[in-house]
Amino acid sequence: MAWLLPARLQPWRMFSTSRLLQDEVQDSGPQQQLTVNFIDHLGKKITVPVKEGQNMLQLVQKHSLNFPGFGACKGSLACCTCHLILDKEVFQKLDPVSENELDMLDLTCGVTATSRLGCQLCMTKDMDKQNIWVPKGVTESYTPQ
């Protein structure tokens, strides 16, 4: 008989407050195709298709977008390398930011009033065709002299 640990003691489970932490959103019938525009720190715009409910960190990883250092903790809410900046109008329509996410944002360089962490941000219809700015990554922000 196999020994099973209670869920809270299973070492392979990751901590996160995201509503959805999966590679793909579960198919619940036809969905409207949404898009989001990522704009890197150099102003390059990258438009990618996305489904409602899809996690922004996983979206960046799925499309292999070249944002150096982005999502170093792989969504465990232990760093701030998936820092994103939203338009005020979009930010105000989202669910409130959790205390854990606010704690991580306090450690972020260049944080704004509309900053969010990609690992905690899931696509909504309000974000369709909107711009999301990816500030200069943590790994790029330090240049040795």
Rank of each mutant, 00 (worst) to 15 (best):
L84W: 09
E99H: 11
K136C: 07
M123K: 05
L102T: 10
L42V: 03
H63K: 06
G71D: 09
A113P: 00
K51Y: 11
V111P: 08
Q32N: 13
L105Y: 04
G71P: 06
K51M: 12
S16C: 07
V50N: 03
T47D: 05
G137A: 07
P30T: 14
N131Q: 13
V90C: 03
S28K: 15
D103F: 08
L84K: 03
P6L: 08
K136T: 02
A2G: 07
T81F: 06
L77H: 02
A2Q: 14
I39G: 01
D95E: 14
D126G: 05
G75C: 01
L107W: 04
W3T: 15
K44S: 10
W3K: 15
Q33V: 01
D40W: 00
G53L: 03
L117T: 07
F38G: 10
L42T: 13
Y142Q: 14
D27L: 07
H83W: 03
S16G: 09
D128C: 05
I85H: 06
T108I: 02
K93F: 02
R116D: 04
V134Y: 01
T143Y: 00
S98N: 14
L94H: 12
V97L: 08
M123F: 00
K136P: 01
Q120V: 00
V138A: 14
Q130D: 11
L59Y: 06
L65Q: 11
A2C: 03
F15V: 08
K45L: 14
C82M: 05
A2D: 12
V50Q: 03
V60D: 09
K88H: 04
A2R: 12
S28I: 05
P11L: 14
V50T: 09
D95M: 07
L77N: 03
H83E: 10
Q92W: 03
K88G: 02
A2H: 04
T47I: 09
C119V: 01
Q92K: 13
T112F: 07
I46N: 11
Q10E: 15
V97D: 08
P144T: 04
G53I: 00
R116G: 03
E101K: 10
D95Q: 13
M123H: 02
C109P: 01
E140D: 15
Q120G: 05
R8V: 11
V134H: 04
A72N: 06
L57Y: 11
D106C: 10
S98V: 02
T124N: 01
Q130H: 07
G75L: 01
L21I: 00
N100H: 12
N131V: 03
L102D: 15
E101C: 07
S76I: 00
W133G: 04
S141K: 12
S141G: 06
G110K: 12
Q32I: 10
S115D: 09
K44G: 01
S141N: 14
C109Q: 15
V48G: 02
C119F: 01
Q120H: 01
I85M: 05
F67E: 12
I46C: 10
Y142N: 15
Q31R: 12
V60Y: 04
I46V: 13
K51S: 13
K136M: 12
G110S: 12
M123G: 01
H41E: 12
K45Y: 09
G69Y: 07
M123A: 02
V60H: 02
C109K: 15
I85V: 05
L105R: 10
N131L: 07
C79T: 02
L94N: 08
L102Q: 14
M56D: 04
L5V: 06
Q54V: 01
L86A: 06
